[in-house]
Design a protein around this nucleic acid. Structure first.
Lengths: 148, 148
DNA sequence: AAAAACTTCCTAAATAATTAAGGAATTTTA
DNA sequence: TAAAATTCCTTAATTATTTAGGAAGTTTTT
């Protein structure tokens, strides 16, 4: 379905999401319309989920990354949890632990005060116990290795 | 330094990184060159760190997200650790625990076999002990709440 | 194996997006 | 308050993208 040319295009856009079609065409040695066609197809098929600007969090005062472990009485509350998590902009990720009723949340906040507030908010959800670990000096990659 | 118009532009690009300048101009009620100027400045200043395409990991067979806790004998090895982590495409994030010599790695792999292999690779690093937790059903946001 | 259907590519033309230039209006600095 | 700096505008030039139509190569069907 995808060939090496597609992968080359994808690898390039993973690193530079606003790269122009002429540049991509040059990289893969195809005409611009051909690259456009491939791109459109991959977007339509959902291979490319979207494009995002990555902002400098520090510039906005977000200094703390915290992981919060959430224990739930019953894993039936999963949907409720996701619903709550979606509404909280501080929580960037929610991972369900394989087989258990426990979840790991990743949150980004400006200071310890904001973190404590977030934690007590989560504690207040019914049937939930939460513990946190705080991190600094995070490095995050936006790319993963793709192949077929 | 940044005003509400800038934030509006940033919020928009966080959600749709390839949005055209004419659309942004419409949203913030400025001319296209004015929006371009603001954008270029924010890119130059590093407020916008970059743009990237988000690919569908499942489409490439990456089914497992794992968090790996890494204990190091001495926190002096931080740079060495980062150096190793940078070279491993499976590892997408590395977070240093506040105050300790311990780190949390986030890895994305195709299957449990690949995860076990990664774990033993990390175990082989000098002065390092590693334990993992495996996750499924992750939800990840690409935006955080920005304000001044 | 030949015909039909499909895919992928191309060029050329039309349309759309971006940048550049120059100047007016406003805000900040001295 | 005058000079400097910033931010905005319009218009024109440049660059990027899409559309249209058709050639070449594959795959599927008969």
């Amino acid at each position: 379905m995808l060939d090496e040319i597609d992968l080359k295009i994808l690898r390039s856009l993973q690193k530079k999401g606003r790269k122009k079609r002429n540049e991509l065409a040059e990289e893969v040695q195809l005409s611009i319309p051909s690259v456009s066609e491939r791109l459109n197809k991959m977007e339509d098929k959902g291979i490319i989920e979207g494009y995002y600007a990555k902002l400098n969090r520090k510039a906005f005062g977000y200094d703390i990354t915290a992981f919060i472990q959430v224990m739930m009485e019953s894993s039936k509350n999963y949907k409720t949890l996701i619903g709550k998590v979606e509404k909280m902009p501080q929580i960037l990720e929610c991972h369900a632990v394989l087989g258990e009723g426990s979840h790991l949340l990743k949150a980004v906040v400006k200071n310890t005060e904001a973190l404590e507030k977030l934690l007590s908010e989560i504690q207040s959800w019914p049937g939930v116990t939460a513990t946190k670990t705080t991190y600094v000096l995070s490095t995050v990659k936006e790319t993963f290795e793709i192949n077929i």
